[in-house]
Design a protein around this nucleic acid. Structure first.
Lengths: 153, 153
DNA sequence: TATTGTTATACTCTATAACTATA
DNA sequence: TATAGTTATAGAGTATAACAATA
């Protein structure tokens, strides 16, 4: 027995708990697609993950937070993406400690190709009716509204 | 312009496409939780991923498929989990080429602790009503019904 | 004094290819 | 001949700690 503040619909065996279990099964499917897509572009998973985070320029620091890894790892990952001409470092004129990671044209193109692969809904989405897809979208919208990308729990 | 066989509710900008985009945002959140939980138990992400796959014993081979990596990687990952007393290799009496990876008592315990961390729905689930959680569960159930864990697209 | 990013180190993961044992 | 798993190798990721530059 554990005392929690969780609402009834989120406790073990509840609809919420089961919905999260099923979500995690879907994550596994997505993860495999992601790994396969990354390898097809000769990207290490961590490199592909970094590229995907770079919809807009991001300080090294923020990138480390999003990738849930140490700052020192980002140095190496960005080094190699930079050597491949996919990103560049841009100094922040307002705080000269900070470096922003910016996609090059080639990086933008490759990121787009990566998104074409993993951005397409998986086949199991085709099992749903148009009405169910709308319901799913609306529920996820409400769940994720105003959630900063780098958050959280 | 690309010719696809995708139904109207899955094309770019459609409810289905947006639902998938939002799902991927949720995956990112889950991924960060997973990485943090793994490091708290001194597990490399790949080791934690392997442990999570081991709800039941699994041949090395099948584990490699689920982790979307080469067989040769699984050898090292399982070596280290075995050295830590979390899993053991069990020979298959029917096909002596095959080794099944089985959780030890300690491995079962650690896997349970890991699941306590990442198996709890994230805070954003609390934004949903009981009715919405039921809807979400039902939609995901239909989407994932009869999908083998190691599948697919 | 704290923060950003880098470097150095040790360990782990990853893919590839070659190898052994078994089918 | 094909498959399951291991080994060897080279390159990359990962955490930790120490460091320089900047705030």
């Amino acid at each position: 027995m554990r005392a929690t503040t969780t609402s009834a619909s989120l406790q073990a065996g509840s609809p919420g708990a089961e919905a999260w279990d099923l979500s995690r099964a879907l994550f596994g499917l997505h993860r495999r697609r992601f790994l396969i897509a990354a390898s097809e572009f000769d990207l290490h998973p961590a490199q592909a993950g970094a590229l995907l985070q770079l919809a807009a320029p991001l300080p090294m620091n923020a990138l480390a937070t999003r990738l849930a890894c140490d700052n020192s790892n980002v140095t190496g990952i960005i080094d190699r993406l930079e050597a491949r001409g996919l990103v560049r470092r841009r100094l922040d004129p307002e705080d000269r400690r900070v470096k922003h990671v910016v996609l090059t044209a080639a990086g933008t193109r490759l990121r787009g190709q990566l998104l074409e692969r993993i951005g397409r809904p998986p086949h199991c989405f085709e099992r749903l009716s148009a009405e169910e897809l709308r319901q799913l979208r609306d529920i996820l919208r409400r769940m994720l509204a105003d959630q900063p990308a780098a958050a959280s729990r």
